[in-house]
Design a binder for these strands. Structure first.
Lengths: 244, 244
DNA sequence: TATGGTTGTCTATATCAATAGACATTTTGA
DNA sequence: TCAAAATGTCTATTGATATAGACAACCATA
């Protein structure tokens, strides 16, 4: 926790930079011994800013429910975050993090049908214009949103997937009912960007947060693509783990 | 490119949010037909902000060398970025992106020796306090910095690795000279955060940029850990690809 | 119970971020 | 050659961000 400089005149307010750093420190376990954030005056000294700026940062974290200030005592840590999300040939949402939380759930936000764009067609190895089922889903762990995903499935094979998914809450089960006993992850692409409006709403993020974006292709056991998805994860809540 | 709302009073200035979005659009190829960014007035309408705010965003991108404004004509796209960085059992810096750029290079920034912290010891499966060689390196593609990394190696086996690396510029070759003919990636953890001071300097980033952080463990063919590294990539310049 | 350490609140001031409008300058093409 | 379209520059105003200082309120504990 040395070298705590913040940058000025960058378009990112100091209080937000500091809030992000403190959140990262909390998640890293830096304050586990006391269960408290250092005093505002100490943080102000550490970051080289006014105490009021620290208070703005802590207020943002309190708004997120991560800390709670108690007058006279200090600022208590309420909640730590960051799930480890494994990426492997058998990547599935619930299985990977099932042992890290009490309950995982997946919710269907919206379903529609559309024609494959050139980009989607290339990914799914079909011809442009082929009908696709599009699902918008939200992944939750212990009732807290972790990821939001858009998935596309060829409509000829999986036209009914929305209904089945809505009742079971599981892609794996839906595939099974539709004649795909098993499927594997072919490739995952990972990038990072700032949270957009939808991320803020669905993932309950604070503005300016970072999201990890995973674009994934799943195929059945005959290596025929069955699902292309773009998932957005709150970068503060997850880490990806690639086991080789 | 619809739904272009930006958030106010979030601690992230509008011009920075917009600069990030435009950069992403450029990298995505949205303006490839014209080779130009839309006119400032059009962007102002699209994002729902004043033209001056758009100008601030474009000025930031011009500062990065991504666009160049020409009075009377428009704003030209100078450079697109984003390398695909494969992560697999045989992940190496140069091999993966070698076919995407003309030249890859790796530069040694600093070398030192230190005792293993409890965390490092756990990762490398050694006892706390064991001597480690620590290397700070910078990965370049076509003379542009792509990643900065800190690596640790057990000093008993690899005490001379700094010298060999300095001359060869290759971890693979250095390992070979030190009796490790081959090595594999055991696990990679991927997170994302805001760029820190060192990122700004070494990776020539604009303040407020996002970095992808990859923590990786390499082992020799006897499955004995030989290297633990933390690499930081400019999120705008790379995407990770996990092939399964 | 007194004291030191901590968060809460208030006022004041300076700078950055954003909007608004007007007009100049340059390029392109009809 | 003129007009349209685009970037460049300037002034003015408002609200958010950040600093500075002072003091109140509260908690733990010696």
């Amino acid at each position: 926790m040395a070298g705590q400089k913040v940058q000025r005149q960058t378009g990112v307010a100091l209080w937000r930079q500091i809030a992000d750093r403190i959140r990262t420190s909390i998640n890293h376990g830096d304050f586990d011994e006391t269960g408290m954030v250092p005093p505002e005056t100490a943080l102000a000294l550490q970051f080289g800013v006014n105490r009021h700026t620290i208070r703005s940062a802590l207020a943002a974290l309190a708004q997120e429910g991560i800390v709670r200030a108690v007058q006279g005592r200090g600022t208590l840590i309420e909640r730590k975050e960051r799930l480890s999300f494994p990426i492997s040939r058998r990547t599935r949402f619930s299985q990977g993090i099932g042992d890290q939380v009490r309950e995982t759930r997946s919710v269907l936000l919206a379903a529609s049908e559309e024609a494959a764009s050139p980009d989607l067609a290339r990914q799914l190895k079909i011809s442009t214009g082929t009908r696709l089922v599009r699902l918008e889903t939200l992944g939750q762990a212990d009732h807290r949103p972790v990821s939001r995903a858009t998935s596309w499935f060829p409509a000829d094979r999986f036209g009914a997937i929305a209904e089945i998914y809505r009742t079971t809450g599981s892609i794996t089960k839906a595939f099974r009912e539709l004649g795909v006993p098993d499927y594997v992850r072919v490739v995952t692409e990972i990038t990072a960007t700032h949270a957009d409006e939808g991320d803020l709403a669905d993932l309950q993020l604070s503005p300016g947060a970072i999201v990890l974006v995973a674009q994934a292709l799943n195929a059945d056991l005959d290596n025929i693509p069955v699902q292309y998805s773009i998932s957005r994860f709150a970068a503060d809540r997850v880490r990806f783990t690639v086991e080789n």
